[in-house]
């Protein structure tokens, strides 16, 4: 009995996580499409994409994120969506680590919804590592058990997590105090 209950709880938590990832990827893909100019600049200056290919690369990245979000929404394609999400976030993580290793901390990585006022650092690395790990977790869970359509409460949970993620994103993009008691 308790095994069945805990399995159900685990499936519900994974579904909430997947709903959050789907909402985040759809929002991120939409944002990249709306802010195409910034996305092109980021791809050129941060990812090293040649300038003439940047418009196509921007469209491809925005589409890939939106596609991953849609796939996560569909139960039969959720595992594939999670793998695509892990590839995307893992790719961004490697680009961030590469930029930090080369001392290019001040470049805009395009990984926040607003304009970044802080240099690249531990926060971006940790955030992308967590996102990549959570996407792999969803992919593994989808392979292991039956995948159900999202319940209304799970969709709301995903949206609530997205709002909290947005708040964290905004807070961490604020100019950091140089010194002081708070941070």
């Amino acid at each position: 009995m308790s095994t069945v209950v805990s399995l159900g709880v685990m499936q519900s938590l994974i579904a909430q996580l997947a709903a959050f990832q789907a909402a985040l990827l759809l929002a991120s893909g939409l944002h990249k499409w709306i802010a195409r100019g910034r996305t092109r600049t980021v791809l050129t200056e941060f990812a090293g994409v040649p300038r003439r290919l940047a418009p196509f690369a921007a469209a491809a990245v925005a589409s890939a994120e939106a596609l991953a979000g849609v796939l996560l929404w569909v139960p039969s394609w959720r595992a594939a969506g999670a793998v695509l999400a892990a590839l995307l976030w893992g790719g961004y993580l490697s680009l961030i680590l590469h930029a930090i290793a080369r001392g290019r901390r001040d470049v805009d990585c395009g990984c926040s919804f607003g304009a970044a006022q802080r240099p690249l650092g531990a926060y971006q690395v940790l955030r992308n590592a967590v996102l990549t790990g959570s996407a792999l977790l969803v992919a593994a869970a989808c392979e292991a058990g039956a995948v159900q359509p999202f319940l209304p409460s799970q969709v709301l949970a995903g949206l609530a997590f997205l709002a909290l993620y947005g708040a964290l994103d905004q807070t961490m993009s604020l100019t950091a105090p140089r010194s002081g008691e708070l941070l």
């Binding site: 607003g114 209304p152 709301l156 609530a160 997590f161 909290l164 708040a167």
Partner: peptide
């Protein structure tokens, strides 16, 4: 569901406040 809606609202408010500070 009511709790998730509450948390969603709280997240949006926090996001708006952080944006306003920026």
């Amino acid at each position: 569901i009511a709790l998730w809606i509450g948390l969603l609202t709280l997240g949006v408010v926090c996001m708006a406040l952080a944006r306003q500070i920026g």
